[in-house]
């Protein structure tokens, strides 16, 4: 089971991420679970998902745009953003816009190629849950959030940029 960091500790994950290949039959087969489904899946089977007796959230791949979700985001307890590879930086922008522009205040979760050395930047962009890659050292990952004491820019963690606080 992938390791999840939330609120500064390793947490038990109650969610299961469904891959793009999955379809609605899984909902019938496994009732009462908490699924994070691909955005496309949710668009296609919305009614069925709304009737499901467990909780449903969505995940976006890096080439999908949070601005294109034409629905009330507050219905989702969390939105996950995928890093197909750690060097693909698009999900940083999605996270930031979810928080800053769309005012989403649920969990924003990083999934995929989530590595220790990117966690600090992810947190500053508004991620607050991190499903780290299986081979990552949990303790080292927890330490990553204090790599830097401060940053220059406005961020989700500290919206007032340093120049307004100096």
């Amino acid at each position: 089971m992938p390791k999840l960091i939330k609120n500064g500790e390793i947490t038990q994950d109650i969610w299961t991420v469904l891959s793009e290949a999955s379809g609605p039959e899984i909902l019938r087969a496994v009732p009462g679970k908490n699924f994070i489904v691909p955005l496309e899946f949710w668009k296609l089977y919305r009614e069925e998902l709304e009737e499901y007796d467990g909780d449903i959230s969505i995940w976006l791949d890096s080439d999908e745009n949070v601005n294109d979700i034409d629905s009330d985001l507050s219905q989702f307890p969390l939105i996950a953003l995928n890093f197909p590879v750690f060097s693909d930086g698009r999900s940083y922008t999605n996270a930031r816009e979810l928080r800053e522009i769309m005012g989403f205040d649920g969990e924003v979760r990083a999934i995929g190629d989530v590595l220790r050395d990117q966690l600090f930047y992810m947190a500053r962009c508004g991620f607050d849950a991190f499903q780290i890659r299986y081979d990552q050292d949990s303790e080292a990952c927890l330490a990553a959030f204090t790599d830097f004491e401060i940053g220059y820019q406005s961020s989700i963690v500290e919206p007032v940029p340093l120049f307004r606080r100096r």
């Binding site: 930031r96 990117q118 940053g151 120049f163």
Partner: peptide, 17 residues
């Protein structure tokens, strides 16, 4: 200098294309 500080460790733009 203002641009230098803004661009240094900018969390959103560390993995540009």
């Amino acid at each position: 200098e203002i641009i230098r500080q803004w661009s240094t460790f900018h969390p959103e733009f560390a993995f540009l294309p």
